[in-house]
Design a protein around this nucleic acid. Sequence first.
DNA 1: CTGGTGACAGGAA
DNA 2: TTTCCTGCCACCA
Length: 104
Amino acid sequence: MITYSHLDRIHAAVAEIPPGRVATYGQVAERAGLPGRARLVGYALRRLPEDSAIPWHRVVSARGEVSARSAPAEEKEQRLLLEEEGVVFDRRGRIPLAAFRWEG
DNA sequence: CTGGTGACAGGAA
DNA sequence: TTTCCTGCCACCA
């Protein structure tokens, strides 16, 4: 059933991403039943409280990059959290999606 | 209601 | 390959 907004569904989709794997914004949108609305995923993640249990750090751009945002510290934190899970970044600071992308 | 914005993606050059 | 440009549409002021 449709709830208050699509944000809840997006959060639920992100929660399904297993540790050590990543999913793209577009991928999350599709799994949330919102194909083509990747931008909305970024919006939804931005609304998450800091103490949220949603693994927001496992969502990256279609190019395997940690998306830029207003607070650079968060970008660094995201990369750190992913590396702690075993995700590897290449020399250009990108994640090889062929190896780490979550195949739902 | 109207207009600006964005944690994107895909195609063009 | 990489960078640039455009379409997209829910949100917010």
